[in-house]
């Protein structure tokens, strides 16, 4: 479904601040695979997801969705295939628009925006139904301004929004990082449900080793702009959090033991 062929991304090329964020990523992700992506800060995880979404265009290399070469396609042009949830709960929604308006925008993803009203009663029924899944009482607040919702509520709505239109690829960049543990668990739960329902191909960035192993079918670790480890199948099922942490220590090139199940700073 997603093929990255030797993708390189360099920021500020030729300047003193030149930064090679991706240094040749080769990755084949078949349809229906749920990949969790780990790696230290600055490893290039967000850059990889942004490149797949089209926010960043690759400096070299090729990107394909099945047979469709999207290397030169704009972010908006890829949205028929790609849905995403950002790390920042404020980033995925418009704070000055209502819940239903935000959902209507997401409902229009990948369609041509026409001159018919974006909202109608049928859609409201659909939105209410979807919001009920969250158990946050939002189904009664369709006309509340998004900016009045808490970060967790906004993130949960963003997640529902990403699934309102059929898409093939779902990109999640630390989408539970800004949430309290209870809401994070709820959002992860709904993520799993949606992925299961829609048979999506998923890439999920996380800093939690637990999350990385408990969810999905494959785990990759990035380091300094490259894919360092690629775990799948039975090899992956034998992995424990502490094994992952050891991998990290190795990648960092020091023997230092890490005992937190969250990966801390350092690249």
């Amino acid at each position: 479904m997603i093929s990255c062929k030797d993708i390189k991304v360099t920021f500020n090329a030729g300047l003193a601040t030149e930064k090679r964020a991706l240094r040749g990523v080769d990755l084949e992700i078949p349809q229906g695979e749920f990949v969790t992506v780990i790696g230290s800060n600055g490893a290039g995880k967000s850059t990889l997801l942004n490149t797949i979404a089209g926010d960043i265009s690759a400096s070299s290399g090729r990107l394909l969705f099945d047979a469709w070469d999207v290397t030169k396609v704009s972010a908006a042009g890829r949205t028929a295939d790609v849905a995403r949830v950002f790390q920042d709960p404020l980033a995925g929604t418009c704070g000055n628009m209502t819940v239903e308006e935000n959902m209507a925008l997401a409902y229009g993803r990948g369609k041509r925006g026409g001159l018919l009203p974006a909202l109608n009663d049928d859609l409201r029924v659909l939105f209410r139904e979807q919001l009920k899944r969250l158990n946050l009482g939002l189904e009664n607040r369709l006309d509340a301004e998004m900016g009045l919702l808490s970060g967790g509520q906004r993130q949960s709505v963003s997640l529902l929004m990403s699934a309102l239109q059929p898409s093939k690829i779902l990109l999640l960049d630390e989408h539970t990082a800004a949430l309290d543990p209870k809401t994070a668990a709820l959002v992860m739960d709904i993520t799993d449900q949606i992925v299961e329902e829609k048979k999506l191909t998923v890439m999920m960035v996380t800093h939690s080793m637990r999350q990385a192993l408990d969810h999905g079918t494959r785990t990759i670790m990035m380091h300094e702009g490259k894919v360092m480890f690629d775990l799948k199948g039975s090899e992956r099922s034998n992995y424990e959090v502490k094994d992952l942490l050891n991998l990290f220590a190795k990648a960092r090139g020091d023997g230092e033991e890490l005992d937190d199940d969250k990966l801390l700073l350092g690249a």
Partner: peptide, 27 residues
């Protein structure tokens, strides 16, 4: 009326949150 259509709402999203607009297929 226009600002409540799909097109018009896309325009509002463009001003309010361009990144979100783009992620939802709005040019």
């Amino acid at each position: 009326y226009f600002l409540n259509t799909q097109y018009g709402m896309g325009m509002r999203a463009t001003g309010a949150n361009p990144r979100m607009a783009q992620a939802n297929g709005i040019v």
